[in-house]
Design a protein around this nucleic acid. Structure first.
Lengths: 124, 124
DNA sequence: GATTCATATTCCTTTGCAGGTATATGTTTC
DNA sequence: GAAACATATACCTGCAAAGGAATATGAATC
C-alpha cells in the first residue's frame, strides 16, 4: 500500500476518530454515529472513503454494516495505525471517543458477539 | 502539536520527500531543487507550508536558507517522523532521493560544515 | 406488501490547497 | 551600485474533497 494514500486517509479529523475506534475492534455505522455525535451521511461517506482506499473492510450483517481494519494490513498501514493509537492516547477527542465506546459496548451487544451468534434486534 | 496538523503536512508527496530528506540532516533550498528535480517555487511553497505548521525550522546563512527538523520535536512528531523514515525505506521515490542526497553532499560542502566555518561560494 | 430501520448515494455548494507565471526581497560579488 | 544569485510572495486557475439536504437501496418486521 502506498504510503501517501495512507496519509491522505489520516488527514481528516473524522477519519482519525473512526480509525482510532476501529483499532479497538469492529463497529457498525450506528455505533460510530452514537460515539462521534456526527450525522449519518458524514460518517458513511468517510467510511466509504477509507474503504475505497483499503484502510477498512466491511461485512454486511443483516441490515447492519460492520466495519473493521483489514485482517492482514500492510507493513506501512500497521506501523501507522500503531503510531496513531500511541499518539491518540494523548489527545482529548480520542480519549473521549474511547470512553464512549466502552459505554456503547455495554449497552449494545458487542459486534463480535452479534457476528458469532447472529443475534439481532435494534441497534442503537 | 496537534496530530491532525502533522498528518495534513504528510499528505502531499512533495512534502513527504522533503521530510524524508530532512530526516538525514539540514538542507538548503537549492539542494532540494537539485534532488527532487522540482521547480523552485514548488519547493519553496511546500517548505513554507511545513514551516508555518512547525514541522521545520529555518535559519538564514548568507543568501541561503537552511531548513531542518525542529531541535526538540514533540512526541507525536518524533513518532511520525520515525514511522515515515521506516516506511519510506520501502518506496523507490524516497530511496532515489536519498541516493541523490549522498551525491549532493559530496559535491557541495555539507550544510553543517558551512554553518560551522561560514564557508561560502556558489551553491548548486 | 407496507412500514421501519440501517446505510449508501446523488446532487449541490463551498473551500483549501496544488501548481504555474510573474515578480519581489534580500544577499553577495564585482 | 549594478548585476547575479538564492529564495519568497502575490496572483490566478483548477481540482479534490468536505459538508449538508434529499433520496435511494436493502433488510427486517408486522
Amino acid at each position: 500500500m502506498e504510503l501517501l494514500k495512507i496519509y491522505e486517509c489520516l488527514c481528516d479529523r473524522t477519519r482519525l476518530r473512526l480509525l482510532n475506534l476501529l483499532s479497538h475492534g469492529p463497529l457498525c455505522v450506528c455505533h460510530f454515529q452514537e460515539i462521534l455525535g456526527e450525522p449519518q451521511v458524514k460518517i458513511s461517506k468517510h467510511l466509504a472513503y477509507l474503504r475505497a482506499r483499503g484502510l477498512v473492510d466491511v461485512e454486511r450483517q443483516g441490515s447492519w454494516m460492520i466495519y473493521e481494519l483489514p485482517f492482514k494490513p500492510s507493513r506501512e498501514l500497521r506501523a501507522n495505525l500503531a503510531c496513531l493509537q500511541d499518539c491518540a492516547a494523548e489527545e482529548a477527542v480520542f480519549r473521549r471517543d474511547l470512553a464512549r465506546l466502552r459505554k456503547v459496548d455495554l449497552a449494545c451487544a458487542p459486534v463480535a458477539a452479534v457476528r458469532r451468534t447472529g443475534a439481532r434486534g435494534r441497534c442503537c
